[in-house]
């Protein structure tokens, strides 16, 4: 419950107005970004209740002030190695089409402005690699490259739908 009190609740007014804003987070050494308009809040890691018959990257459900929301581990979603959660692990709660989902990330970095012209489409090469299909574009900020994620695809990729249809 303490995690809730530490939660960073983002002002909704800012979300709507700023199209080019991204919330960035770290998975290993790489920085990723999601469009801030989908993000409702960021909370510390908390007790996750696991459920049977779920794809491995779906960690289970958490209680967010009485609301029960599912949690996806982004690391596992990208097919990366599992890593123990620590005090820096965060859950980014995103909301798309009235569906709330928590995304577990190694740590949250910052909110940054990436103008449209600095975003390049994802490279076509190596398209078979897992994870690339979630990429919305590559954002260039100074010398760094941010991998900007397509939140819609991250949550509702057809692979996932197939999985839930089987279970």
């Amino acid at each position: 419950m303490e995690a809730v009190e530490e939660a960073v609740v983002l002002e909704p007014g800012v979300n709507a107005a700023n199209e080019g804003q991204f919330l960035t987070f770290m998975i290993g050494e790489q920085q990723y970004g999601v469009e801030i308009k989908y993000v409702t809040e960021i909370i510390g890691i908390q007790n996750i209740t696991s459920l049977p018959d779920l794809p491995h990257f779906m960690k289970g459900i958490i209680n967010l002030r009485g609301k029960v929301i599912p949690v996806v581990d982004v690391r596992l979603r990208f097919g990366m190695e599992e890593r123990d959660y620590d005090e820096r692990t965060c859950i980014i709660v995103v909301s798309i089409n009235d569906t709330n989902v928590g995304l577990v990330v190694d740590t949250v970095a910052e909110v940054m402005n990436i103008p449209e012209e600095s975003i390049e489409p994802p490279p076509k090469v190596n398209s078979k690699a897992n994870g690339n299909r979630f990429i919305y574009g590559l954002g260039k900020v100074q010398d760094n490259v941010q991998i900007l994620l397509d939140t819609q695809k991250l949550l509702f990729d057809e692979e996932l739908e197939q999985l839930s249809a089987i279970t």
Binding site: T49, P52, D53, A165
Partner: peptide, 15 residues
Amino acid sequence: PLPEYLGNIKGVSGC
């Protein structure tokens, strides 16, 4: 109800 996002969970009717 369990979040719809998870689909049908075998053996669990809700939480």
